[in-house]
């Protein structure tokens, strides 16, 4: 039976789609058969970040409505084995996501896949609720910034009250923090919340810290999950996070400013 992971945040634009793409790719690279689903109905974007936008024929909603078979809508990644994408609809609205429909499709996917990664839309409305409802694991994507932290706390409250596991009194959804767009230099200057501050406030375990990185935009420009950019700090940070998710003990990197000697200034690593 596959496990369902939701990437959620409450707040928009914090890096859920970037993280979903990276995480799903990382799990597939580690040998797990993985599918990543776009729950952001009406605002399809995961296809672009994954670089499969030209291959979308059917979508998640078509499958829910019985207009297409699941295997027809699944897009197989061209770079990584074991990796599939289930895009969302661009034309429908969030009401198209019915609980029964989502449940049916997830149940089918669970039989065939090791991991199902759900890319949640922002907010705490239907789309976000559907993305988290069936989850076994939640990755809370947060930026070191007041509104993002507060919204993450809200979404933790929703997970504790409105997920299937909460409603049925099962073991709770695991909750881990993925702190993204972290800028160690601004933290050093006292301009940005520290990892420890955010951890203290949200009181959930840390899955990883992804630094603010120009590699993210470069990767999305060319439709490649940033985790495949093995020279980038962000890519490495996602790789570490995946390892930790799989139970490995990996030290956190990129939380301190990089020392820039004379040499480092010339040979600046593509951050």
């Amino acid at each position: 039976m596959g496990k369902i992971i939701v990437m959620t945040s409450g707040k928009g634009g914090v890096g859920k789609t970037t993280s979903s793409a990276a995480f799903a790719t990382g799990l597939a690279l580690r040998g797990f058969k993985t599918v990543v689903i776009d729950f952001d109905v009406g605002l399809r974007n995961l296809d672009l970040v994954m670089g499969c936008e030209r291959r979308v024929v059917f979508d998640f909603i078509n499958v829910i409505n019985g207009e297409a078979k699941l295997h027809q809508a699944l897009i197989k990644d061209k770079r990584v084995d074991n990796l599939f994408i289930l895009p969302t609809s661009q034309t429908r609205d969030k009401d198209a996501l019915t609980k029964d429909g989502v449940e049916r499709i997830l149940a089918d996917l669970e039989k065939d896949f090791d991991y199902i990664v759900c890319d949640s839309p922002a907010g705490i409305e239907r789309g976000a609720l559907m993305a988290l409802y069936f989850a076994d694991h939640a990755v809370i994507v947060t930026n070191p910034e007041v509104s993002s932290v507060r919204d993450s706390d809200r979404i933790l409250g929703v997970l504790n009250a409105k997920s299937r596991r909460a409603e049925q009194g099962l073991e709770p959804v695991t909750q881990r923090l993925l702190l993204t767009r972290y800028d160690p230099e601004r933290v050093e200057r006292g301009e940005m919340l520290k990892v420890d501050d955010v951890l203290e406030i949200l009181a959930i375990p840390l899955l990883g810290v992804v630094p603010e990185s120009q590699a993210v935009l470069r990767a999305s420009n060319i439709g490649m999950p940033v985790i495949l950019d093995e020279k980038s700090n962000a890519g490495l940070a996602y790789m570490d996070a995946v390892s930790r998710f799989l139970g490995e003990d990996v030290e956190h990197r990129f939380v301190k400013p990089e020392k820039k000697g004379l040499f480092g200034r010339f040979l600046r690593r593509s951050a």
Partner: peptide
């Protein structure tokens, strides 16, 4: 530092 204020404000409101 503004980050310290951010933390304090968050702790209270949350």
């Amino acid at each position: 530092a503004s980050a310290v204020q951010a933390k304090e404000r968050l702790q209270i409101v949350m």
